[in-house]
Design a binder for these strands. Sequence first.
DNA 1: ATTCGTTATATCGGATCATACATAACGATC
DNA 2: GATCGTTATGTATGATCCGATATAACGAAT
Lengths: 113, 113
Amino acid sequence: MKRKEIRVRCWVNVDGQRFFGPGPAELLRLIEATGSISRAARTMGMSYKKAWDIVDNLNTRARKAFVIAHKGGQRGGGAQLTDTGRKALVAYEKLAGKIEKIVRAEKALLQFV
Amino acid sequence: MKRKEIRVRCWVNVDGQRFFGPGPAELLRLIEATGSISRAARTMGMSYKKAWDIVDNLNTRARKAFVIAHKGGQRGGGAQLTDTGRKALVAYEKLAGKIEKIVRAEKALLQFV
DNA sequence: ATTCGTTATATCGGATCATACATAACGATC
DNA sequence: GATCGTTATGTATGATCCGATATAACGAAT
């Protein structure tokens, strides 16, 4: 039996290029949960470099930073979401949730495959 | 001024790999309009090979073909959508339209960038 | 000063994907 | 049977993304 599923992805473009989407959203969630970029990256099986690039991109291009990181110290350092980062994440999750709901209610497409 | 926009894309996966999405949908629309795979491809700036691969993928993996093509003849050949192909396209457009509507009503995300 | 885990950054190679090119087959019309 | 634009298919090249690796800087605590 074929496994059929409707998938949907939403993201924000700024000046034509990707700014925020499901990957960054998941990363922010895990930074909030773990308190560090590197732990968040490990948890989701992403390289630290990629995670850092994502965070840097968010902080550089948003009007206010999404993440504050500090290095050194007893535990090497860490990172937290700013208030702006937390609000952006919540707004994204709200939109994604609404879209998910639509998709769950709409299965007509799948009868053709 | 930054140009900010929310984008969304939905597609159908079969057994974990892409089956139908915005690209194939646009291609089907243009095959319907032009009567041939190659004209459709040219119209949307896509190589004929890629267009043919998409059509072949649809026809091979769907339970019924989406496109019927014939080669040779006075005008070299041509292609039309099957009834199934047309119905699948309509179902996709219906779903995509609903999602677009949600997105247009939800701009809260954009204030952070 | 040493230790520690993290932040921060550059570079290299590979894998994947897109594109271009090349060519054969087809069949109605003339 | 010559012509024509299309379908159908393979291959080679180029570009782009991704992962792995390496390394420096940092600062609190001991």
